[in-house]
Design a binder for these strands. Structure first.
Length: 189
DNA sequence: GTATCGATTAGC
DNA sequence: CTAATCGATACA
């Protein structure tokens, strides 16, 4: 599954002079038209059209009137499958991320899907961006999981389609979002 | 048309 | 627990 393959990989953002680099530590998979939790469940629209396009592009949506969330389209054209980037570990460009986020805590700069988009400066205008050719891309290098096990559990914040354990994260990583319960039992980090 | 609810987050 | 705040969806 693409979601698991993304964990430990590195996202690079070269949209400004400052080069941002971050390791993907938590993701959620969304299955397209047959997944009731997916934005694609109700069919193609202006908002989610990118999901129905070719893989390797960014699906960026606006929600709750104030947040953006970033997905990687990963299914064949028409499948509308996507992986939501829920949390990353800052590796380079922390100064710019801190400025955008208005906070200093390293572990929380990219913790939570809304925070990811804010720290990276991504919004609806980046909807459809090609994540292979850049300027925002996912490095093709071997994923570095820092020796951590892969954990999985139910997706956060979804009602319909709960029951599918389609959230994946690096066990015990300090930058992963969610509560103790959501991270699967005691001693999560 | 109006009502309701989000793939959320920060703050009390 | 709640406000913030817009758009998509549900319903009359």
């Amino acid at each position: 599954m693409v979601a698991r393959a993304l964990l430990g990989r590195v996202l690079v953002c070269e949209r400004s002079r400052t080069r941002l680099v971050a390791r993907i530590v938590e993701v959620e998979a969304y299955g397209g038209a047959r997944d009731p939790a997916s934005h694609a469940f109700h069919g193609c629209s202006a908002r989610n059209a990118v999901m129905f396009g070719p893989p390797g592009h960014a699906y960026v949506y606006f929600t709750y009137g104030l947040h953006h969330c970033v997905n990687v389209v990963c299914g064949r054209e028409g499948a509308a499958a996507a992986v939501l980037l829920r949390a990353l570990e800052p590796l380079a460009g922390e100064g710019l991320m801190r400025r955008r986020r208005g906070m200093r805590d390293h572990d929380r700069l990219l913790r939570g899907p809304g925070c990811v988009a804010q720290a990276l400066g991504l919004s609806r205008e980046h909807d459809g961006a090609d994540l292979v050719s850049g300027p925002v891309w996912i490095a093709d290098a071997s994923p570095c999981r820092e020796g951590r096990a892969l954990a999985s559990g139910p997706r956060i914040g979804v009602r319909a389609g709960a029951g599918r354990a389609w959230r994946f994260w690096l066990a015990g990583h300090p930058c992963v979002s969610g509560t103790r319960a959501e991270n699967g039992g005691p001693l999560p980090r």
